[in-house]
Amino acid sequence: MDYFRQAWAIAWKDILSELRTRQMISSVLLFCLLVMVIFSFTFDPGAEYVSELVPGILWVAFCFAGTLGLERSWGAEQENRAVDGLLLSPMDRSAIFLGKALGNLVFMLAVELVTFPLAAVLFGVSFLDVWGKVALVAVLATAGFMAVGTLLSAITVNTKLREILLPILLFPILVPVILAAVKSTGSLLQGEGWEGISSWVKLLAAFDVIFITVAILTFEYVVEE
């Protein structure tokens, strides 16, 4: 149990410092809003087909916004070489990964919690009837996103290209997550029930299990000095 307490301590450190400044969450939320506004210029406002585009718009916004958050997550540890302190702490390296990923997950879910209602208001769709299933999809998709993202951003933060390289590495890997999230959010909005999303949910769960395992196994090679 010590292992998970240590991981939670790392996650809580990130959550606490974000709660004190609220810098990242406000800028990332504003960024999500901007993406939605820019998207709305590409189609006629109030057109019938808008509700079919909403899942895509939302998840594109989350992909971009999440990448910004991930970049910041390890970038902040580079300041004053805080990462050295983390690595010197007497705990398993994979617990550090788990903690950082958990912190990123909480952060990103908070962003999504605000953006979903915002999108509902702006594009005139309603998630109220299906909020439980949408939440399940969002949590599973974001968990996979953050597991791979936390691993890869620990890599890219140490390269010459930094913030440009992260999406280039991350987005092709995330193709299954993006497809599953967009398609299942879409079928929920179309009023389809559990059978419309069950295979996507299973795919998301498989992605999460596989990549959390791979990340835990390989993370120590990323940070080893």
Binding site: V148, L151, L152, I155, L169, P172, I173, V175, P176, L179, A180, K183, S199, W200, L203, A206, F207, I210, F211, V214, A215, T218, Y221, V222
Partner: peptide, 19 residues
């Protein structure tokens, strides 16, 4: 690390796009 992550992803990419 990326060589491993990338290859593990291939079946999932194929399955998702196939659906």
């Amino acid at each position: 690390v990326f060589g491993i992550v990338g290859f593990v992803d291939v079946p999932l990419v194929y399955l998702s796009i196939h659906w």
